[in-house]
Design a protein around this nucleic acid. Sequence first.
DNA 1: TATTAATAATTAGTATGACAAATATAATGA
DNA 2: TCATTATATTTGTCATACTAATTATTAATA
Lengths: 143, 143
Amino acid sequence: MATEKFSTYSYLLDRTNRKIKQYAQQKFKEENFDITVDQWLILKNLSIHNDQNQSQLAELTGKDHPTLTRILDLLCKKGLVERKAAPNDRRSFNIHLTEFGIQKQKEWAPKVAEARMKAWENLTEQDYEDLKRILNTIYQSLS
Amino acid sequence: MATEKFSTYSYLLDRTNRKIKQYAQQKFKEENFDITVDQWLILKNLSIHNDQNQSQLAELTGKDHPTLTRILDLLCKKGLVERKAAPNDRRSFNIHLTEFGIQKQKEWAPKVAEARMKAWENLTEQDYEDLKRILNTIYQSLS
DNA sequence: TATTAATAATTAGTATGACAAATATAATGA
DNA sequence: TCATTATATTTGTCATACTAATTATTAATA
């Protein structure tokens, strides 16, 4: 295969990734969700795996530690999330949703799911499986 | 299809996209290319379509205008690119590679192509076609 | 022609991401 | 126990992305 064409997929991936985020963010704005797409990812994960420390949460969400620290700072400021000192390790915090955070996560989830679905309206179940497989294969090849 | 699973693709896409950039950037560093992955995209496009104005270049590369302005500022500072006043429209510039820029673009291209290839080593030609089709379909569904 | 609208580029503010370095604490081993 | 090493988190810096606003210029039109 010609090497040249391999510039293309990275361009398409980057462009599509930005479009997906942009689209979801626009929907959030229309619904007056006071949150970013990346912040939502953290909320969503906390709704499933509560009381993770930041390292675990970083691993789950694929964010690096400095980025996670800053996203959590913002979520705390919005009152959606709290850091609680870990009982047996004074270096770390357990991160958990506040009552307000739980409420908002539940409130926002359906609209988020709806926005996510939109991307898929002209594709098939098989496409979905193929995309997952291809992306995971790429990820592993570069890891 | 369950709506819930549609969180997954956006996560995988974002994660894979970051990995691809990170991998390429790492290779650039190893080779002492004084350039970022996004800056390379602009150089590469200029090597094919020289003397574009910034709007055209933004369109070609999928960057928005403020981002392109800043990337060009950096490329100019590195002496790889120049803004030249457009002859018939005093609002706009024609962007072109300098001699140094042409030289570096040619010098770096093979290693970039090699780094790009790496992602693909466990995938097929058909996967490549599928990925392109799926990404373009998503992009269009959200546009 | 004078006014208004459109376009090209920039600037400003905020968020995210990568990387390196710093801080605090915990675990390990001589 | 003391020194070293490892781990959890934060801070700093630079680059990119998005939005909104600004500036300069051109085009359109009343």
